[in-house]
Design a protein around this nucleic acid. Structure first.
Length: 835
DNA sequence: GATTAGGCTTCG
């Protein structure tokens, strides 16, 4: 079998080699503290690795690319044109691109900082008067760029500062200069000039071999191969019983084969930097052996790895300890393809657990910051961590001596109710001891153990990281560049906690003052992260289901979900109020412009027909308005039990009133029913206007389902001793199908698995606001707006949105063409403290 | 120079 030399040697002689060479791309990765002097490795055409010591390569991210169509810049970075560059603008998320037309020798400033100056020409602006700009590169980047950059190369800088240039005008350049440095958060990309690449080839500069990658179902015993894989399982590097660190990684790929690799290295940084299942790795020179009837990968001489985030759309930036490595366009393509494959072929675990979402009795991975640590005994070690959330259960505090506890005292005190005590055992102790306070960790497979019942608070939760490495149990240190760490840092930073060094010297009284905001902090956290803003009124025993699972299941079913409200419709909340007929299930808008209708219909009483006045069950009064119109208004006061009641208990019927007049009467009397005189007596008006006003509410009837009866049907209600004058009863005797006020809204819920649109159909239960009353109440409208602002705070990032616990039912709506599944919220209400 | 672990179910 041929080894890597054989593969590479053949590839180097292949006709495509020249083309490939011109498309070479090399990443120079960040040098990492503590790894010693890095090396730059050039691969010779034969594939043998030549190592060459150089000074530290400190560039944040520096690449030589040629002919790469797809620049691996984060998607939010936008291009900036030369003529748009202005002083005072923030260029953190912009990039500028130009051709190097001039470069100066590397110099040092008075303070010893390196400075490298180049002039870039904007090729998109060749014909404008000013088409070049000075670029000043500082520090380590200056050194690196000066080594690599040549005349004619394309220089791309993302994230830079802009300042007035003292020399630009005399050279006819842009009056500002770009300032590039690590401190400015710059990333530099250099596209080498084609001619230069060809020239370097003729001068037989070192060339990287073309790598051949073997799919996981093609592996043969005793070979050394290069491969790609999606991480299905991994154990973060741990100290083995031998001399090395060990990491076990199980990979899958589109061939549907699986390979478990056992990787050893004396240098933990040489093991793949895998942070989660779904990450994609590229292994070079891994040995394949047969073990227990299965292929196994194992590190051998020259093993190297790259690790990528497996999330579709995430920046393709390799994590590695190698200082120089090849990375080509087709490999970019491979990563993209594997991401797509993994998205539908790898079961991604649920949302990353937070302390707030801890489920007792289960195991979880936690991304957190180390706040304190302490030795406990010979076989266990304590880590005090937090993740910006609060565990909803009482948690166990591991008793340790004050003097054994390492960490910032003030911060430990401020966070005393938020930190989780994680007790790590046996083999994890060594790594735990070496962790730096303040570092960001991912702790894998923490056991959330229910406390022993004989304890006074039997319900408390203990967090253990058991000994051994089954399940991938272990601790990983995350770099500051990790997106989840960035996110967490940002959130923790927003809480305004003090990390000041001076705090140590503060008196305890001063420290107490600083921690006065602890309650604020906690209530803020609770509101924004921990307690759900909606709760179930039933079905408490149901387990949560992911939204994606719901979407892919058959209907009808019911689920409990924990999700965030990303958006809702309608945004204008008054538009959510509709009228619903429970008989024909129709929905309609609440009519507006009743006033006009009332006047029009009421004007029929210019000459009141007194025939129907003063009957056995009502007394009638005619009023004349004081305005010029001299309108006649007839009010019929319904008696019952032969007597007139107190106004508050009395139902009145009114002929010829305007809506305004009716509202006035509705305030004094129990109910108002607009009527008119017809041939055979009083009758209801058209159902486009309310048939009843009670309190603040206008009641409507369904035009489809109602068969109005003569008004005298009301006399039966009047005859009872204490008529309730319930709208539903009045509607019933009058042959009206009562329309109910409802809130109809569409919530777009999201969880880690995706979005789901669900409908809210609520009379009163969800918001605890009667839909019937909101249109006439400013305070209720305000209350609803505030509730929605709590459920879905405007301008907040998804991560900072509160959780909703909802009960959801799927149902099918059929029509002639097809049938569609919809989702509706049931048995859910806004949490008590939100209302 | 060999060894480490070889994931598949977790003491306190």
């Amino acid at each position: 079998m041929c080894g890597p030399r054989g593969h590479a040697g053949r590839a180097a002689r292949a006709p495509c080699e020249r083309k490939w060479f011109c498309r070479r791309m090399v990443f120079v990765a960040p040098s990492e503290a503590g790894t010693g002097r890095p090396t730059v490795a050039f691969c010779s055409p034969g594939g043998a690795v030549q190592e060459q010591e150089t000074a530290a390569m400190p560039v944040l991210l520096l690449k030589i690319i040629n002919g790469l169509s797809d620049m691996p810049l984060p998607s939010y970075v936008e291009k900036e044109e030369l003529n748009n560059l202005r002083e005072g603008v923030d260029y953190t998320n912009r990039y500028f691109q130009g051709i190097v037309i001039l470069s100066y020798p590397l110099t040092k400033l008075a303070d010893g900082t390196n400075l490298f100056k180049v002039v870039l020409q904007d090729t998109g602006n060749l014909y404008s008067q000013i088409n070049s700009i000075n670029v000043l590169i500082y520090g380590k980047m200056a050194e690196d760029c000066s080594k690599i950059l040549h005349h004619g190369d394309t220089f791309v800088v993302a994230g830079f500062k802009l300042a007035k240039s003292p020399t630009a005008v005399e050279h006819g350049r842009h009056d500002c200069q770009l300032e590039v440095s690590e401190e400015a958060g710059s990333a530099v990309y250099i596209y080498a000039n084609q001619k230069r690449m060809v020239a370097s080839e003729t001068l037989s500069m070192p060339v990287a071999p073309k790598y051949v990658y073997t799919s996981l179902n093609q592996l043969k015993d005793g070979t050394i191969v290069n491969l790609y894989g999606v991480v299905k399982f991994f154990k973060p590097p741990y100290v083995s019983k031998g001399t090395d660190y060990c990491s076990v990684v199980t990979l899958v790929d589109p061939s549907n084969a699986k390979l478990t690799c056992t990787l050893f290295s004396g240098n933990v940084d040489c093991l793949p930097k895998i942070y989660k299942v779904g990450d994609i790795v590229r292994f070079h020179r891994i040995k394949i052996r047969e073990y227990n009837g299965q292929m196994q990968g194992i590190t051998g001489g020259g093993f190297a790895s790259l690790t990528f985030d497996g999330t579709i759309g995430a920046p393709i930036v390799p994590r590695t300890s190698s200082k120089v490595y090849t990375f080509m366009e087709e490999e970019l393509k491979t990563i993209k393809e594997l991401r797509v494959w993994a998205a539908s072929n790898l079961s991604i675990s649920g949302p990353p657990a937070k302390l707030s979402g801890v489920q007792p009795m289960l195991f979880f991975d936690l991304t957190c910051q180390l706040v304190g640590k302490a030795k406990v005994d010979g076989s266990s070690f304590l880590l005090k961590v937090w993740d910006g959330t609060k565990c909803p259960y009482p948690t166990w505090k591991v008793p340790v001596e004050e003097r054994d506890l390492e960490g910032e005292k003030v911060l430990l005190r401020q966070l005393r109710n938020l930190t989780a005590d994680i007790l790590v055992y046996d083999n994890h102790m060594q790594l735990a001891k070496s962790l730096k306070i303040g570092s960001f960790l991912r702790i894998y497979s923490i056991h959330a153990k229910q406390g022993s019942a004989d304890n006074e608070d039997g319900s408390h939760i203990e967090f253990h990281l058991h000994g051994g490495t089954c399940y991938g149990r272990g601790i990983g240190v995350l770099p500051e560049s990790n997106p989840e760490v960035k996110e967490l840092k940002e959130f923790l930073g927003s809480l305004g906690l003090s990390y000041s060094q001076d705090m140590e010297s503060m008196s305890s009284l001063e420290a107490e003052c600083t921690s006065n905001n602890v309650t604020d902090l906690e209530s803020h956290l609770q509101r924004c992260q921990q307690l759900p803003v909606t709760v179930l009124t039933d079905h408490q025993d149901l387990k949560n289901t992911h939204l994606k699972t719901i979407l892919s299941s058959t209907a009808p079913q019911q689920y409990r979900v924990r999700a965030k409200l990303r958006t809702y419709k309608p945004q204008k909340l008054y538009q959510s109020v509709k009228l619903h007929c429970s008989k024909c299930n129709s929905l309609q808008e609440v009519p507006i412009g009743d006033e006009f209708d009332f006047c029009l219909q009421g004007s029929a009483v210019a000459a009141p027909n007194t025939v129907f006045h003063n009957t056995s069950w009502y007394d009638s009064v005619v009023w004349t308005t004081q305005d010029q119109k001299r309108r006649k208004i007839v009010i019929h006061f319904v008696r019952h039990d032969e007597l007139l009641q107190q106004p508050k208990d009395t139902l009145v019927m009114i002929e010829g009133g305007t809506l305004k007049e009716m509202w006035k009467l509705a305030k004094r009397f129990k109910c108002v029913i607009p009527v008119r005189s017809a041939e055979h007596g009083l009758q209801l008006l058209d159902l486009s206007v309310p048939f009843l006003l009670q309190g603040n509410v206008k009641y409507y009837g369904c035009k489809q389902c109602s068969t109005p009866k003569p008004i005298k049907s009301l006399s039966s209600l009047a005859a009872v001793q204490q008529p309730s004058w319930e709208p539903s009863e009045i509607a019933k005797v009058l042959g009206i199908e009562l329309l109910q006020y409802v809130f109809i809204m569409r919530f777009t819920l999201v969880d880690a698995t995706g979005p789901l649109n669900v409908y809210l159909f609520d009379y009163e239960k969800f918001f605890q606001i009667p839909a019937s009353e909101i249109l006439t109440s400013n305070s209720l409208q305000q209350k609803m707006q505030m509730t929605m602002n709590t459920l879905c705070p405007p301008g907040r990032k998804l991560d900072d949105l509160p959780w909703l616990e909802c009960f959801i039912r799927s149902y099918i709506v059929k029509d002639e063409m097809n049938h569609q599944v919809y989702y509706q919220i049931f048995d859910t209400t806004v949490a008590e403290d939100v209302v």
